[in-house]
C-alpha cells in the first residue's frame, strides 16, 4: 500500500507536461509582450520496446504557460508545460505517460509573403522528458525518452474574416541529444526515486543523429485576434521515435486551446 502511495505521489509530481505549439502565433499588432496559458486534450500513444513491444494508447491533458515577445520583425516565444495521459495496451493493462517540457523559438516574421499568406521562418529548441510509468509490466522502473533538440520551424498565416486567421506550423528537430534507459538495468528498484524525474533521464545521453532519433511536430488551427488578447484553437501532431537502445515511439494527437494577453507597450 505504501509503495502504491509512493508511486502515485511520484506520478502526481510528474504530472506536468505538454504544451501548445500554436501558442507561438500571437497578434500581429498590439502589445509587444504576451503572457498566456495553454490547455490541451491529448490522444497519446506510447510504445517502448525496452519493456514490451506493445502500443499503449489513451487520453490525457496538458497545462502550460507561455510568453511571447515581439519587436519589429522578430518574435521570441517560450512555453513550458506539464501533462499526463492514462494509457492502456491491448490487454487493458494501464500506465501513465507524463511529459514535461519547455520550448523556445525565434522567428523572422514575414519571411515570405504571397497574396494572402504570410510565412514566418525561425528556429526552435525543445527539451522534453517523457516519463512512462507502465507499472503493470514494470513496477520498479520508469521508462523515458528525454530529448533536447533544435531545428528549423516555419509558420504560415492566412487571414480569415472577423479578425481570425488560419494558422499552421511545422517543426523539424535536426540536432540534439537524447536520453534513454540503459539496455541492461541492474538496479532492482528505482521507483520512487526523485532523481529519476530529471537526473536519471540524463545519465545515458546520446547524440540524436537521424539514425537513432526522428521527430516531427506540426499544427493547424484558427486564431482569434482581439485588441489585447489572442485565442487559438488548433490540432497538433507530435511524434518522436528512437531506436536507442530499443525502439520507442511517442505520438500525440492534441487539441490545444491557448489564450494570450498582451502586457507592456505596443510592438
Amino acid at each position: 500500500m505504501r509503495r502504491l502511495c509512493q508511486i502515485a505521489c511520484t506520478g502526481l509530481i510528474l504530472c506536468i507536461g505538454g504544451l501548445g505549439f500554436a501558442s507561438e502565433s500571437v497578434a500581429s499588432n498590439g502589445p509587444s509582450h504576451h503572457l498566456g496559458y495553454i490547455l490541451s486534450a491529448d490522444a497519446t500513444q506510447y510504445r517502448d520496446d525496452s519493456l514490451v513491444p506493445m502500443r499503449f494508447s489513451g487520453g490525457g491533458g496538458n497545462i502550460g504557460l507561455g510568453w511571447t515577445f515581439r519587436r519589429h520583425r522578430v518574435q521570441l516565444a517560450v512555453n513550458i508545460g506539464l501533462g499526463a495521459s492514462y494509457v492502456t495496451e491491448r490487454m487493458g493493462n494501464p500506465g501513465l505517460v507524463l511529459p514535461l517540457w519547455c520550448q523556445m523559438s525565434g522567428y523572422r516574421l514575414g519571411f515570405a509573403r504571397w497574396e494572402h499568406m504570410t510565412m514566418h521562418l525561425g528556429m526552435f529548441w525543445r527539451s522534453r522528458i517523457t516519463q512512462a510509468m507502465l507499472y503493470s509490466w514494470d513496477d520498479a522502473h520508469f521508462y523515458f525518452l528525454a530529448s533536447h533538440v533544435a531545428g528549423p520551424s516555419a509558420r504560415i498565416e492566412w487571414p480569415l474574416p472577423k479578425n481570425k486567421k488560419l494558422i499552421g506550423a511545422i517543426y523539424l528537430p535536426m540536432l540534439g541529444i537524447i536520453g534513454r534507459p540503459p539496455a541492461q538495468r541492474f538496479v532492482k528498484q528505482e521507483i520512487p526515486n526523485w532523481d529519476f524525474l530529471i537526473v536519471k533521464p540524463h545519465e545515458n545521453m546520446e547524440l540524436a543523429t537521424f539514425a537513432i532519433y526522428r521527430s516531427v511536430a506540426a499544427d493547424v488551427g484558427v486564431m482569434w485576434e482581439g485588441k489585447r488578447s489572442t485565442m487559438t484553437f488548433a490540432y497538433e501532431f507530435d511524434f518522436e521515435y528512437s531506436n536507442h537502445p530499443d525502439t520507442v515511439y511517442y505520438l500525440v494527437h492534441r487539441l490545444v486551446f491557448t489564450q494570450f494577453i498582451g502586457i507592456g507597450g505596443d510592438s
Binding site: Y46, R90, L251
Partner: peptide
C-alpha cells in the same frame, strides 16, 4: 494512419 504500430509479445 498516424498510429504507433502494435507489436507481438511472443
Amino acid at each position: 494512419c498516424a498510429c504507433v504500430p502494435d507489436g507481438s509479445l511472443k
